[in-house]
Design a protein around this nucleic acid. Structure first.
Lengths: 244, 244
DNA sequence: CGGTCGATTGAGAAACCTCAACGAGGGTGG
DNA sequence: CCACCCTCGTTGAGGTTTCTCAATCGACCG
């Protein structure tokens, strides 16, 4: 069965509550595409056709090192779009995109969409919001990778997931990991082995309870605390900012 | 002496070759600000006033960990702008900005600028280009931090710098580091000690020659090669993308 | 039931960070 | 003009985190 482009687009931040005819116009340049599980949508270096909106399924966007290690930048589900920035920068996608499950997407073609932007400032401004969110996420990822160890990243991810779903962060709250542990490990910038050990440690410390993909928060208080009882700052030197 | 806003804005990608009256209008909402060396422009969490264009001097934008370690996201010089994305996302800056030298900036205030965007789709589209470039840089930084060791990051930085200045990458090419080694270390996601050792190793391997901030490329060929003579791929597993 | 995939565990190695000490250079105040 | 101080950069030693490699186990699929 086929999914209606207008219905999908209406759910995206980018196109939501646009005048009906704008929406139909956008839908008219949206190319439906279906993928099997573990299928490439595009690869780094591929020529940019446009950006994508996920109608159903799940997609991971990632970078790949020469040795074959991957860093997941984002995992997207229905209603989310990706590769928007590729429209405005160079002619090639700067990362890989691959399905994690059977997936349907709409490709919004570059040329028609850019033309639309000129006539619809409102859409351009929404797009600015989209890119800004992406940018914030990426700087957050940089911060994670550079300034936090794996355990801290994992904790941050868990509380972020809870928040995204509106689940209050308190003892007993549970959530289901939205994708496989291997993918999550890569999203957190580590390998499955290290990730597994981090999960185990948190469990042994009595902070969470793991049963498969189900995580139960045992001690919400300790989730937020840096490292149980962290010591005071160590390094001062050039570290303190704004000290004129 | 004071710098004319119009002259500065004209040099930025965002405002370049805009109609003269648009430019003057933008300049009229630009607030000039001067800072001493090592002075904070804003801190993470500060309320967003607008974004900044550097007129003279040098600014670093960075994240700070609880322990005081910093990760430099970008260093900006005259004609460059920063914190654009903060206009569209939340009300607080997501990072720190601090001068590296005496600096003059123009603050482009949020409210008037957003109003302008509605009337000037062209500016909005340029802004999309700006954000996309930022986004690409940040994903590049993520890739660096996650998938490359310090030595590789350093090499990549060096060849990137050469390219930015239009210096052909061949034996004997030289460049001057655009900022202190400590800042560069932080930009590369490491500490001064590790950075220093990486430089030393490259020199001992006969790939570059270091004299203070002056770097001379001794063996351009080996700059590009992953690690002199790298072996074939190791890990396969989930690594290879697009294998359906 | 064999096979594949995701996940886990152990052991060892590698990269990186921390701490401490030191030297060179630049600016400042006496 | 010189002594002092401060910052920047470097070096050494040791510790920590993370990665690598290998083996194993359970679940699911054909």
């Amino acid at each position: 069965m086929t999914i209606l482009a207008t219905d999908v687009l209406r759910r995206t931040p980018l196109f939501a509550s646009l005048p009906e005819d704008d929406l139909r116009w956008a839908a008219s340049v949206a190319v439906p595409r279906r993928y099997g599980k573990r299928e490439a949508i595009f690869r780094e270096g591929d020529a940019v056709e446009g950006f994508y909106v996920v109608a159903s399924g799940k997609v991971k966007v990632f970078k790949l090192s020469e040795e074959g290690k991957e860093q997941v930048l984002h995992v997207l589900g229905p209603g989310q779009s990706f590769a928007e920035a590729a429209l405005f920068e160079g002619g090639a996608y700067p990362a890989y995109a691959e399905t994690l499950a059977q997936t349907e997407t709409f490709l919004i073609q570059k040329r028609p969409f850019l033309d639309m932007l000129e006539r619809r400032p409102k859409v351009a401004i929404r797009m600015l919001g989209s890119l800004s969110r992406w940018l914030r996420q990426m700087t957050g990822l940089v911060e994670d990778l550079s300034l936090r160890d794996v355990e801290a990243r994992l904790l941050l991810f868990l509380s972020g997931e809870l928040q995204d779903r509106g689940i209050p962060l308190k003892d007993g709250a549970t959530l289901e990991l939205p994708f496989s542990k291997n993918v999550l490990a890569s999203r957190l910038g580590t390998v499955p082995e290290t990730f597994s050990r981090a999960l185990k440690k948190l469990q042994e410390d009595g902070r969470i309870d793991v049963r498969g993909k189900r995580i139960r928060i045992v001690s919400a208080a300790s989730l937020m605390a840096g490292k149980a009882t962290a010591g005071p700052n160590r390094r001062t030197g050039t570290a303190e900012p704004g000290r004129r």
